[in-house]
Simulated scan of single mutants.
Amino acid sequence: MNTGLPRLPRILLLGHRGQVGWELRRALAPLGEVHAWDHPELDLADGEMLERVVRQVAPAIIVNAAAYTAVDRAESEPERARQVNALAPERLARLARDTGTWLVHYSTDYVYDGRQQRPYVETDPTGPLNTYGRTKLEGDQAVQASGCAHLIFRLCWVYGMRGNNFLLTMLRLARERETLRVVADQIGSPTWCRLIAEATALALQQVLVQPDPERWSGVYHLRCAGETSWYEFARRIVETVPAGERKCREVIPIRTEEYPTPARRPAWSVLSCEKLERTFGLALPHWETALRLALGGE
């Protein structure tokens, strides 16, 4: 029976088992009919499979929350990282262009070299220091060059209450170790993945009302307000663990060179979100407020 109601748009969500993807599945539900795919049923490195899924779902919007995010392992698996972070977005962008579909893609602060001391704006020169950042930047550039209608959100220091991330690692170590040594000379903005998903949904809501690629398409920085170091972030996390459960008595600040890793990290990862606020009227809360919310505080 025809009810006369307009059909909800189909949304293809890729990477729904990841931190951001998990939250997106819930946040996008009011906007349309969400079709969620992830590894192993979908291998982003398999171009034919990717095209088959897109043709099968026939979405109005593709949201690509899938990525190769193992920053250090990417140094020894550069081709796999490139397949997922660069070539898959390129294929998605081409499919989106050919089918008139919007593409939402997530990027990273690691596309910048971290040498400047003011918040990065979207037009600042890039200069990734590691394989992960280089492959993510290649994906960004492919999406932009494709001619498809797109939103690229560059994120910073993402965490959540599931999966593998800094927050959950610190909560565990605070219960296991008396002393934690944490890098204090890398600065960024910890960002709760739920807020990323909700901001994405709010932006897409505006796009659906007025689907004008000339107005909306582009790169946007999306992160919580404020800035801090991994050390200060760790301190705040440890303080939230109840005294009766907390074994950690001291968090010690160290320099980056005291904690060598296969991949170099930018020292400064603070992103300006002025473009996001100007275009969509969206601004995320301070990172400390977001941390309290993520941990169930008021």
Score class of each variant (00 low, 15 high):
Leu276Tyr: 02
Leu271Phe: 10
Arg264Asp: 14
Glu232Gly: 05
Ser189Asp: 07
Leu204Trp: 02
Ser189Gln: 15
Ile196Glu: 04
Glu227Gln: 12
Tyr259Arg: 13
Thr191Glu: 00
Glu214Val: 07
Glu239Ser: 14
Ser229Leu: 07
Ala197Gly: 01
Val219Leu: 12
Gln206Ala: 09
Ala267Thr: 13
Arg264Leu: 15
Gln205Ile: 00
Ser217Tyr: 02
Ala283Asn: 09
Pro266Phe: 13
Ser217Pro: 03
Val209Lys: 06
Arg278Ala: 14
Trp268Gln: 13
Val270Pro: 10
Leu282Pro: 15
Leu202Trp: 04
Ser272Gln: 03
Gly244Tyr: 02
Glu257Gly: 06
Glu232Cys: 04
Val270Cys: 12
Pro262Glu: 05
Leu282Trp: 15
Val241Ala: 00
Trp216Arg: 00
Gly218Phe: 01
Leu202His: 09
Ile254Arg: 09
Gly226Phe: 00
Pro266Trp: 13
Gln206Ser: 10
Cys248Arg: 07
Leu271His: 05
Ser229Arg: 06
Thr191Pro: 00
Trp192Asp: 10
Glu245Asn: 09
Glu257Pro: 03
Val241His: 06
Ala203Ser: 06
Glu258Gly: 14
Ala203Leu: 03
Ser189Leu: 07
Tyr231Met: 12
Lys275Cys: 02
Pro262Leu: 08
Cys273Gln: 05
Arg236Gly: 03
Pro213Cys: 00
Leu222Arg: 00
Glu239Leu: 10
Arg236Gln: 13
Pro260His: 11
Pro211Leu: 02
Val251Leu: 13
Trp230Arg: 15
Thr279Gly: 06
Pro262Ser: 03
Cys193Gly: 00
Phe280Gln: 06
Glu250Gly: 08
Gln206Phe: 08
Val251Arg: 08
Val270Leu: 12
Gly281Met: 09
Pro266Ile: 11
Pro260Leu: 11
Gln210Thr: 09
Gln205Thr: 07
Leu204Tyr: 02
Ala197Trp: 02
Leu208Ala: 01
Pro253Trp: 12
Arg235Gly: 02
Glu245Tyr: 02
Gly244Trp: 10
Thr228Ile: 10
Ala225Gln: 14
Tyr231Asp: 06
Arg265Gly: 12
Arg249Leu: 10
Gly244Ser: 08
Phe280Pro: 12
Leu202Cys: 10
Cys248Ile: 06
Ala234Asp: 03
Pro211Phe: 06
Glu239Pro: 02
Ile252Lys: 03
Thr256Gln: 12
Ala283Cys: 14
Lys275Asn: 03
Val209Ala: 14
Glu227Thr: 01
Leu204Thr: 01
Ile196Met: 06
Tyr231Gln: 10
Ile196Arg: 04
Ala201Val: 04
Glu277Leu: 06
Trp268Met: 13
Cys273Asp: 11
Lys275Trp: 08
Thr261Tyr: 01
Lys247Phe: 06
Phe233Ala: 11
Ala267Arg: 15
Arg249Asn: 07
Gly218Glu: 04
Phe233Ser: 03
Val207Gln: 09
Gln210Met: 05
Ile254His: 11
Glu214Asn: 11
Leu208Asn: 04
Thr228Arg: 09
Tyr231Phe: 15
Ala225Asp: 11
Ala243His: 04
Trp230Gln: 13
Pro190Arg: 07
Lys247Ala: 09
Arg265Val: 11
Arg235Tyr: 00
Pro266Lys: 12
Gln205Leu: 12
